[in-house]
Design a binder for these strands. Structure first.
Ligand SMILES: [Zn+2]
Ligand SMILES: [Zn+2]
Ligand SMILES: [Zn+2]
Ligand SMILES: [Zn+2]
Lengths: 149, 149
DNA sequence: TGCAATAATGTTATAAAATAACATTTTAAA
DNA sequence: TTTAAAATGTTATTTTATAACATTATTGCA
């Protein structure tokens, strides 16, 4: 398990390669999400940063920064509850798979797993059979985690 | 394709069987959702009813009524965007399957299809392999509809 | 029937989440 | 250095959701 500093360094390199800049403020927002074990809404993240770093960036900036981090594939947005979570593969070299999120409805813990190609194909086929085109097969499932089950 | 009146009558019977009451106001909210082809938020639904029926029930009541209709399986809530849509099987006699929603990201049209048992099992297995328990396999997928693709 | 108890709906206030419009600061190029 | 673009800040507003309490309607029963 890489340290936060290592993760941030790695993320900075990834951004640089994409011609994007991981600024100090962006780093701190990302650090917040990395430390938090749960997915957080923008406002929850601000509260969290206040407690952890004694720093509350304005909501607007946080929204923009989260958008940026999402574009760079450093965080994911869970539409299910409009919350964000740091990518589990944030320091991996491999291409990012389509993520599937297991969200514990009780304690809020989230686990990110990759979707099997075969499952994606099944989904795609189902969708096409209905005359639709699948844009993103990202799945977000209501679950209970090991502790809460 | 059953008429709205027929659907409402059928829904009323279903409710009665469950010991619940489909009141006039509940009927009108449901009618709104039935006429709308898209999933609507509570507030969008109020606007829609204002235009269609020249009637705007208070938001609080609409939220409560939507909760009721959801409990009775007459409408579904799409958590993806916190919107509601009338069930496609609202007049069917058969047991309701686990729904899978194809949501057109461009025009907002939603198609409700049933999930194959085998797909549900695959999902369940994936989840269990990760130490979680699947609470609800309802799927909400980002798609493009035939017209928008 | 008349009267409680319950259910359904209404009202008002407030909280929470998201976005819009514009200002300022910082950074990178020319 | 000057200028353009990018990043961030500020303020206001909109949208969504819930809480607390009031009123009305319905139902069961004395
Ligand atoms: Zn990821
Ligand atoms: Zn849990
Ligand atoms: Zn349905
Ligand atoms: Zn469409």
């Amino acid at each position: 398990m890489a340290s936060i500093t290592q993760i941030i360094d790695h993320a900075e390199n990834t951004c640089r390669k994409n011609g994007a800049k991981l600024t100090e403020k962006r780093k701190r927002v990302l650090t917040g999400l990395l430390i938090s074990k749960k997915a957080l809404s923008a406002y929850e993240l601000i509260d969290f940063m206040q407690k952890e770093f004694n720093e509350s960036p304005p909501a607007m900036s946080v929204y923009r920064i989260l958008d940026f981090l999402e574009t760079e594939n450093l965080v994911h947005k869970l539409h299910l509850a409009n919350k964000y979570i740091a990518c589990s593969h944030i320091s991996c070299a491999h291409e990012h798979e389509v993520p599937q999120f297991l969200i514990c409805d009780k304690c809020g813990n989230v686990k990110e797993i990759g979707i099997k190609k075969s499952l994606i194909n099944t989904l795609k086929q189902n969708v096409e059979k209905s005359g639709y085109v699948l844009k993103s097969p990202q799945l977000e499932l209501h679950c209970l985690c090991h502790e809460c089950a």
